[in-house]
């Protein structure tokens, strides 16, 4: 992967932006472009991608740990769910556009490496009931007596996941205390869509009160002077970045794409894939065949583009303009 250069997506983006300006209905074109160069890619590389994504970025982890205990947060673009269990004292709702990644997140949170509760790892599913059948609330909760209880029934008590588009989030207005959106918004192909994505996040969080109402957004930075990719100030911002889907029979020596490198508060892109990574990556090249390459769209943010108040290309925003007031 190291040797593969990124390619320009500027002509495509110019076309999409012009089309959207001329006709709001042309939004469908940008959507279709992202379907090919973002969603389709993640669906295809989900397993391999997930195997390289274990370690939470420190900045995100400390944001999560600073939230009030038992507050409720969103992780929009949760991927394989690596942030859902970072702080066991908050309840996390994760969403992602990729059903393949959400399925991985669900199985991951069902079998956390470090269960939130001592017995948390070995939960069993109790009786199933259909709507209208025997009142579920009276069902006997002792799963041990249920011969049909499957071992995979255990679920994390502090998170849940669903499939959703970041531009059409299904969360009610001002319902949650905080939200994170890590390395997601740079995948949207026009500025209008990226701004809309941030607007959507703000819509979901409570208006600012005490320590809640915060939204943490991370995006890839353009200015990565030390990057092996050679991204730097003044460079092109709209790019197709290759992902080489390694056949999983060997340990990939290459590193995952890096995030911003200039800040110490940045992702270490080179997290080693888990030695136990599953070998079921769809479409992995066979022996003697080249590994398939997928090109993901990225918009690299230049300094000051995401927000003026921070210099490391991440931002904490708050919902100060209530969209609606829900009266109790």
């Amino acid at each position: 992967m190291t040797s593969l250069p990124s390619s320009s997506a500027a002509p495509a983006v110019a076309k999409l932006t012009a089309a959207a300006a001329a006709d709001p209905a042309a939004e469908a074109e940008a959507d279709a472009y992202e379907r090919t160069h973002v969603h389709g890619v993640y669906q295809a590389i989900a397993s391999h991608f997930s195997a390289t994504r274990h370690k939470p970025w420190p900045g995100v982890a400390s944001f999560l740990q600073a939230q009030h205990p038992a507050s409720i947060g969103l992780d929009v673009g949760c991927g394989n769910g690596k942030y859902l269990g970072v702080s066991p004292s908050v309840f996390m709702l994760g969403s992602d556009r990729s059903s393949a990644l959400v399925a991985l997140a669900r199985s991951r949170t069902a079998h956390p490496d470090e269960p939130a509760t001592p017995q948390g790892a070995i939960k069993t599913r109790g009786e199933a009931a259909t709507t209208g059948a025997a009142a579920p609330a009276t069902a006997t909760p002792t799963a041990d007596t249920n011969a049909n209880a499957p071992a995979q029934g255990g679920r994390s008590s502090t998170s849940d996941v669903l499939v959703a588009d970041g531009l059409s989030l299904p969360f009610r207005n001002e319902g949650v205390d905080f939200a994170i959106c890590v390395a997601v918004i740079h995948h949207l192909s026009t500025r209008a869509r990226r701004q809309d994505a941030i607007r959507q996040l703000l819509r979901c969080v409570k208006t600012r009160e005490a320590a809640s109402g915060h939204v943490l957004v991370y995006v890839w930075a353009l200015e990565q002077g030390n990057s092996r990719r050679g991204w730097e100030e003044g460079g092109e911002q709209d790019l197709l970045v290759p992902w080489v889907l390694k056949s999983q029979t060997r340990t990939p020596k290459t590193k995952a794409p890096r995030g911003p490198k200039t800040s110490k508060d940045t992702p270490s892109g080179g997290e080693p894939p888990s030695p136990t990574a599953s070998a079921d990556a769809a479409g992995a090249g066979g022996v003697g065949q080249p590994d398939p390459v997928f090109k993901r769209f990225y918009h690299l943010y230049r300094q000051g583009e995401l927000e003026e108040d921070r210099d490391n290309w991440w931002v904490v925003a708050a919902n100060d303009a209530p969209i609606s007031r829900r009266e109790k």
């Binding site: 038992a70 309840f91 109790g126 009931a129 259909t130 709507t131 579920p136 069902a139 799963a143």
Partner: peptide
């Protein structure tokens, strides 16, 4: 809707705050 019931460790603090 088909429902299932998981065995989840009770967490009264979490409930109270939620």
């Amino acid at each position: 809707a088909e429902l299932a019931k998981d065995d989840v460790e009770p967490n009264p603090d979490l409930l109270t705050n939620i």
